[in-house]
Amino acid sequence: MASINPHINFNGNAEEAFNFYKSVFGGEFVRIMRFKDLASEEFPVAEHESNKIMHIALPIGKSVLMANDVPEVLGRTNENENRSKIVVSAESKDEADKIFNGLSAGEQIEMPISASPWGSYFGMFRDQMELNGW
């Protein structure tokens, strides 16, 4: 069965926020990746952004809270906005493909579903509610 996990975007303070969440919820981070960990010719990283969080995950019960810092090149994220990212975890690639393809049909795909650099099967899209500002 599919499960849903929240994902939060930050403007450079993801690590601070997640250390706070860890102090409240307990547990250990599943993974912490920094932008410098992915730096390459194809993915150059500015020195001042190299230690920012590319991906962080903290299990909370049966869910996983995840986040990243948004690179400056993508603009600042409004941390007070009411829109959210929703991460759907599936038990298989087939189930993930079915869910992703169903939810993203006719939508603006930002990243096609595929193996990610941080070890998961990942895709991203904007749905109509987000595109229309609902």
Rank of each mutant, 00 (worst) to 15 (best):
M66A: 02
E15P: 07
F29G: 04
K85R: 09
S50F: 03
N68E: 02
A57G: 03
E47M: 11
N51V: 01
M66G: 01
E28R: 04
G12W: 01
E91H: 12
H7K: 02
V88A: 05
A14L: 10
S23M: 12
E81M: 10
L65G: 04
V30D: 12
S92T: 04
N78Q: 00
V87C: 10
A96Q: 01
F122Q: 07
W134G: 13
K85N: 09
F20Q: 15
I32F: 06
M33Q: 13
G75H: 10
A17I: 11
P112V: 03
E130P: 00
V73S: 14
N19T: 05
E79Y: 05
M124A: 12
V70S: 00
S116E: 15
K36C: 07
V70W: 00
I113A: 14
G123F: 11
V87L: 07
V87P: 00
L74I: 04
F43V: 07
E49V: 01
D97S: 05
P117I: 12
E107F: 00
A46C: 10
S116P: 15
P44H: 10
S23P: 14
S92R: 11
D69H: 00
S120P: 00
E16C: 15
A96K: 02
S116R: 13
V88E: 02
A96W: 04
L38E: 05
G119D: 14
D127P: 04
A17H: 10
F10H: 13
R83K: 11
A105T: 03
N13D: 15
H7N: 11
P112N: 08
W134T: 10
H7V: 07
N5Q: 01
F29H: 05
H48G: 08
M129H: 03
E91W: 03
K98R: 10
R31K: 15
E79T: 15
Q108L: 09
M33H: 09
H7L: 07
M66D: 03
N82L: 09
F10D: 03
A67Y: 06
P44M: 12
L103C: 05
V70P: 00
I4S: 06
N51D: 15
D69S: 01
N101C: 06
I109L: 11
M111T: 14
D94L: 10
R31L: 15
I99Q: 01
P117D: 05
S116H: 14
F10Q: 08
A46M: 13
E107S: 11
L65Q: 04
N9Y: 07
L65A: 07
S50Q: 12
W118H: 03
A46F: 04
K22H: 06
K93D: 05
R31I: 13
F122G: 07
I99F: 02
D97Y: 03
A115I: 11
R34N: 08
N5P: 00
